[in-house]
C-alpha cells in the first residue's frame, strides 16, 4: 500500500521501466502456470479468511482494484473446507491492528476494537484463520486469547501455500 501509492505519486516513471506485483499476483500466477503444485489434504480443518483493509477496500479506492477474488482462488487451491466471514470483502471489519495501532501506547483501545472481528470468526466455527497482512496477523494473534479463542490457528496466506506445496 505505502510502496505502491508512493511509487504512483513520486516515481510514476518506475512503471515504464519495471513490473510490479502484489503477493496475490505472484501466488495466482505460480498456481495457474503450474510452477507450484498444492495438496489440499494438508488442511482438513475448517478455515476462514480475513480481507485486510489495505488489500480490499483501500486498494479498491486507491488503485481501482480490491484483491478479493485472487485470495479466494488461492484458498480454493489449498484448503478442503473454508467458509466466508460475514460481512466480507469491502464490508469486512477491520481487525483493529491497522494504521500502526500495534505500535501506539493505546493498547486497551486496540484490543477492544477487535471484538466484532473475533465474533465474526467465532461464528464460522473455523479452527484456522488465513490472512495476507502482517498487521492483521500480529493483532489477531495478540487478542485471540482475550476473546476465548486460544486455539485458533492464524496463518499467512503464503504460509498456507508453502505448507501445501507438493515437494518434487
Amino acid at each position: 500500500m505505502a510502496t505502491r501509492s508512493g511509487l504512483l505519486k513520486w516515481y510514476p516513471e518506475f512503471f515504464d521501466k519495471y513490473g510490479a506485483f502484489t503477493v496475490f499476483d505472484l501466488l495466482v500466477d505460480y498456481i495457474k502456470s503450474g510452477r507450484i503444485k498444492l495438496d489440499k489434504s494438508r488442511f482438513p480443518m475448517r478455515a476462514t479468511y480475513h480481507d485486510p483493509c489495505n488489500y480490499g477496500r483501500k486498494s479498491e479506492e486507491k488503485f481501482g482494484h480490491g484483491y478479493y477474488d485472487e485470495a479466494r482462488f488461492v484458498l480454493d487451491n489449498c484448503l478442503e473446507d473454508w467458509v466466508e466471514l460475514f460481512p466480507t470483502r469491502a464490508n469486512d471489519f477491520c481487525c483493529g491492528g491497522g494504521g500502526g495501532a500495534l505500535l501506539t501506547p493505546y493498547q486497551d483501545a486496540r484490543v477492544h476494537y477487535a471484538r466484532r472481528k473475533m465474533e465474526q470468526i467465532k461464528r464460522t466455527g473455523a479452527e484456522l484463520l488465513v490472512l495476507p497482512c502482517h498487521s492483521c496477523h500480529g493483532q489477531i494473534k495478540a487478542v485471540k486469547e482475550t476473546y476465548g479463542m486460544p486455539d485458533l490457528e492464524v496463518k499467512y496466506l503464503w504460509e498456507v501455500v508453502a505448507e501445501a506445496l507438493v515437494i518434487e
Binding site: A2, T3, W10, F14, Y18, A20, F21, T22
Partner: peptide, 24 residues
C-alpha cells in the same frame, strides 16, 4: 515515506532487477 519508497527504486536500478514484489 518518499525516501523509503525511493530506496526501492534505487535497488531496482542498481541491481537491474526486472520486477518488484510489493512489500506489503
Amino acid at each position: 515515506m518518499k525516501i523509503v519508497v525511493g530506496r526501492i527504486v534505487e535497488h531496482m536500478d542498481r541491481l537491474e532487477i526486472k520486477n518488484l514484489m510489493y512489500p506489503e
